[in-house]
């Protein structure tokens, strides 16, 4: 679908696949991947289906094929929990990484990463604390405060919130959709990971809201 226009500031494009793309800098950002969440559940004696990691990586493959980035940034919560670091998952991650040797991969540590720990060095991810300036964009996990977001400065991308908006339409229809929430110079990304859920935000508290449907992005004004 074509209706994906909308946001183009500092050379950043919001993508329906819940990612941000900078064509001039050839950099791709996603937030809140939560790899190994299902495996963590299983380790705690609760069954959760296999396949979420494969699906996450498949969607990343698609995005990378679409954009051919030189740099790939995860804005925090890359791994879900300590129990997620299973040998199977880490091996799978190494294999995935080998397919993109020329691409830089950066993980800005989030709250889950602090408990889960960095992926082993041989997985090929550079892990940094926030704020990290990547391709001239301040890359964070936790959002800036409202005041800081409205202050002077360059663009900020962040995650952590998993923003979701509920909209109501005619015939009492309602939808819950993941969204990009823009406030000042800061864009909060929707969670990229499968099996992550979202938290409802009040769209009025933000300057702009962009709803995503996997195939389209729509500006929404409440």
């Amino acid at each position: 679908m074509e209706k994906t226009v909308v946001f183009s500031r500092h050379g950043l494009t919001l993508m329906p696949q819940r990612a941000v793309w900078s064509a001039p800098r050839r950099t791709l950002w996603i937030a809140d991947l939560h790899l190994g969440k299902a495996a963590g559940f299983r380790a705690h004696g609760q069954p959760a289906p296999h396949g979420t990691t494969e699906e996450n990586l498949r969607r990343l493959d698609e995005l990378i094929a679409l954009t051919s980035p030189e740099r790939f940034v995860v804005l925090g919560d890359f791994l879900h929990a300590r129990e997620s670091r299973s040998p199977i998952l880490l091996d799978r991650l190494r294999a995935w990484r080998r397919a993109y040797l020329s691409m830089d991969c950066v993980v800005v540590r989030g709250n889950h990463d602090r408990r889960a720990g960095d992926p082993p060095p041989d997985c090929g991810f550079v892990c940094v604390d926030e704020p990290a300036i990547v391709s001239d964009v301040e890359s964070r996990h936790y959002p800036l405060t409202e005041d800081a977001a409205h202050s002077e400065g360059g663009p900020v991308l962040c995650g952590h919130i998993h923003p979701v908006v509920r909209i109501s339409g005619p015939a009492r229809d309602r939808l819950r959709l993941p969204c990009f929430a823009v406030i000042g110079r800061q864009v909060i990304l929707p969670a990229f990971g499968e099996f992550t859920g979202g938290s409802l935000i009040d769209p009025k508290a933000f300057n702009e809201i962009y709803l995503t449907t996997e195939t389209t992005v729509h500006r929404y004004q409440p």
């Binding site: 229809d173 939808l175 709803l211 449907t213 996997e214």
Partner: peptide
């Protein structure tokens, strides 16, 4: 989902 959202938004805008 996309068709539904598009219709909702256009009906909301029309209203």
């Amino acid at each position: 989902l996309a068709a539904r959202l598009e219709r909702m938004l256009s009906q909301l805008n029309a209203a």
